[in-house]
Design a protein around this nucleic acid. Structure first.
Lengths: 335, 335
DNA sequence: CTGTTAGCGCCTTCAG
DNA sequence: CTGAAGGCGCTAACAG
């Protein structure tokens, strides 16, 4: 069913059909002619061809979003925010795990290079992503970085990471903890550095020093969280509290505490950044700092769709303050 | 950068460039000519326009996947499988929450209607999805249904639901449970009915009857799982075990047990269908039945991309048997 | 007020 | 072995 099929059926020209379909306000047309056209559209079940439209309009109505791991509940929340706003703007979202981008022939790469997407939201961090970005940048697809900066030419959407880490640390400090370790994820990434800074600042303000080896870096997975937290505990048996930069890693930390025969929170308090519904249902309900993830996803879509976005800026999502959610994994130190 | 820009720069015709780009084996071309073309492509950073290609080839390299809730870890696993296979086939995936499809003007609906996607993977269940499907069907976009049948004209990809529920029930039975309740999700859906059948079959085989009011239907959310399980417990205080059709609802059930002062597994055993990594880290580690979710996602993409897929068939993903993962939430009844 | 035309960028014949 | 041309379906500008 093409537009000219409809035109033929309704006895008008393709242009008229096009204007009816697109609700062209300036079109003055006989009431019955319009009805004839609409009837034809309906009966023949016509829908405009997406590729032809994209070609003509040089816009696809598609936004690509690349995140590290779609199964991570944290990213699910970002994606939900993105979806919602995309819906409002009449766009759809192509999601991809960063892990699939090594494939040189990936369809997503082709789309990004060939104007097949109107924008790219990228959570950088791996070598692959960098490649994608380079390509996108050169082809001037509007790009927004999520959480981690890559260069200074690309707009970055950030969370109030520094404050979140400080809030979490302050909470531990106010409970009386003095030696607070740090289980970091995403070494070298912008958001990680900001969280580190928040932790250091809070410690310093309390007259405590955050020692270099009170921090370990790992992957945001249960497995790696468990290993890294285990190493940290072994190296520093005097730690009474742990700040985890990622809920998922924190679940691993919970496991590590159990491995070492440490009770949470009695022997070790744990706070994590990012609140997820499940935090309340873990072996020890986790105290967390909630971040505006949904809003970040939404904002990223807005920004990438807005040609007035200044390249190279930074948008911090501060519509909601990092909010401490106290659960059972934190308490005053028992030693 | 269009193909003719490159042609001009390399001093050849657009057709030659096209064939170089597409690795046309039949193209006999002077070695140095080819090099000139490749150099031009490289230097001018040419990438073929996606819309033009789609228009010409009548295929977009895009597959739409509609699920109920992207934040549900179960769907994350399906999505991962889908992504992986899509990568292999040179396709990208557009993901959407079913919830956004009520919007009549949704971009996804436009794409589906207008040949903007090569296939549709749909997890039906809501009124909205039905609408999408109807549209897709009429436009003859290859469609594959996930888990729930809608009509008999569309290929369905299923899990071994009946066996999974029977496996779970057998486990409880073998522990000595006699009154086993059922917390179902997705009332009336194919996969739910199959699981109900598995439960009934296992009960009958053990000489026990599964009474009609030993089953409640709810949403696959913690909240609703908690409420429904609570009601079931109140109505049938003699139940010693609960079979949950969904891990997420099962987490709610765990909560409900706690609400009622019931210890798990001492007073109430709980098994859930679908294994997720987190099940091991809950307040009570959940005994589950693992299903081949990843494989299902992968297979759905294969089927939807394969024109030889017979419409109306059913593919049961039985590359892996439903596998019981025993954790702490099940034990012999104490009463 | 409505129809005709040209061209978005690509690829596949078909000539040369 | 390479180039020219038509058309995929749509729409914006221009004629009628």
């Amino acid at each position: 069913m093409t537009i000219s099929d409809i035109a033929k059926a309704a006895g008008v020209s393709p242009a008229v059909v096009s204007r009816v379909v697109n609700r062209d306000k300036t079109l003055r047309i006989g009431k019955e002619t319009r009805e004839r056209v609409e009837k034809a559209i309906d009966e023949l079940d016509y829908a405009p061809n997406a590729a032809a439209r994209s070609l003509r309009s040089a816009s696809s109505g598609l936004i690509a979003m690349v995140v590290h791991d779609v199964t991570n509940p944290v990213y699910g929340e970002i994606l939900r925010g993105a979806q919602q706003t995309a819906g409002t703007l009449g766009k759809a979202i192509i999601v991809s795990d960063g892990s699939h981008l090594d494939d040189r022939a990936s369809r997503l790469l082709e789309l990004i290079g060939g104007n097949g997407v109107d924008g790219l939201i990228l959570q950088a961090g791996g070598v692959n992503s960098d490649l994608v970005l380079a390509r996108a940048g050169r082809q001037s697809v509007p790009t927004v970085l999520l959480q981690a900066a890559l260069d200074t030419n690309t707009h970055l959407v950030s969370l109030p990471d520094e404050r979140a880490a400080a809030t979490a640390t302050d909470h531990l400090l106010s409970l009386g903890h003095r030696r607070i370790g740090c289980l970091a994820t995403g070494e070298g990434m912008t958001f990680t550095r900001n969280r580190e800074a928040g932790w250091r600042r809070a410690m310093r303000r309390a007259g405590r020093s955050a020692k270099a080896d009170d921090i370990v870096h790992g992957q945001p997975s249960i497995e790696d969280g468990r290993n890294c937290a285990g190493r940290l505990i072994d190296a520093h048996p005097d730690l009474t509290a742990l700040l985890c930069f990622n809920v998922v890693a924190a679940i691993g930390a919970l496991q590590a505490a159990q491995d070492k025969g440490l009770r949470v929170p009695d022997d070790l308090s744990i706070v994590a950044i990012h609140d997820i519904e499940l935090a309340d249902h873990l072996s020890v309900p986790l105290t967390t700092v909630a971040m505006p993830l949904f809003e970040m996803g939404a904002r990223a879509v807005e920004l990438v769709s807005d040609k007035s976005t200044v390249t190279g800026g930074v948008s911090v999502i501060d519509t909601r303050d990092p909010e401490l959610v106290v659960r059972a994994s934190t308490a005053a130190p028992s030693r």
